[in-house]
Nucleic acid binder design. Structure first.
Lengths: 108, 108
DNA sequence: TGACAGCATGTCAGATGCGACATATCGTGA
DNA sequence: TCACGATATGTCGCATCTGACATGCTGTCA
């Protein structure tokens, strides 16, 4: 209801308390999206590096090829849970996910 | 269906292909749980550091106090999405989550 | 002792995510 | 051109997650 509520309020041009609350929410949302994209890229990168097809990775995760495609597209109907599941399934670690906020060093 | 299917198979003492597939799954599951716990701890730590109550954090996230309690308990019915939402809401970053696999440096 | 603030636990109906499947698109070798 | 393997997209019914709310537990201040 989070997203919906906010969208409803925003589209109505609503003002609650201070505007910073809204900005804060957008910021959090942005970071979440960044994280999703980072993880999804990481999954694709590692999967390809290992020479696995989406089908094979799907089997490994006991999921389906279409889900993998959606993971790698960071599709809206894919949760962070599934994204990280994918990451771990291709042998990735948390450290393999480049923190967009901290972007230092780390080739690729 | 993932968890359920596997549990069903395991409790039946089923053997499919090679056992490593099962071990692999357990390993992934373990990492996922570790991640959940790491993030949840991080949320509590940062929330307290900022002197926020669960109630206040809940308001910030447009969620409820009970959800925050569950986040910080890494309860089973809380998703990684919500955990990270909480992390970002308390101003945390991905780098604030100590990677259990990489545990280096980092005081606290 | 009571009152109160903060955190934990349980339940619900509705929203969201899931695997599965069908099907479409793309790339590439014959 | 066709065939085919890989990836993408859309939909479905069912499972899980969500916010909200009620309620319980614990500490603390008077």
């Amino acid at each position: 209801m989070n997203r919906e509520k906010r969208k409803a309020l925003e589209s109505a041009g609503f003002r609650i308390g201070d505007a910073e609350e809204f900005l804060g929410l957008d910021e959090e949302e942005r970071r979440l999206v960044e994280l999703r994209v980072s993880v999804s890229r990481c999954v694709r990168r590692l999967r390809q590096r290992r020479g696995l097809t989406q089908q094979q990775l799907a089997a490994k995760m006991k999921s389906s090829q279409s889900r993998i495609a959606k993971i790698e597209a960071a599709a809206a109907d894919v949760s962070l849970d599934l994204l990280f599941r994918g990451l771990f399934a291709v042998g990735g670690r948390l450290g393999d996910v480049t923190d967009p906020a901290l972007r230092r060093r780390r080739g690729a």
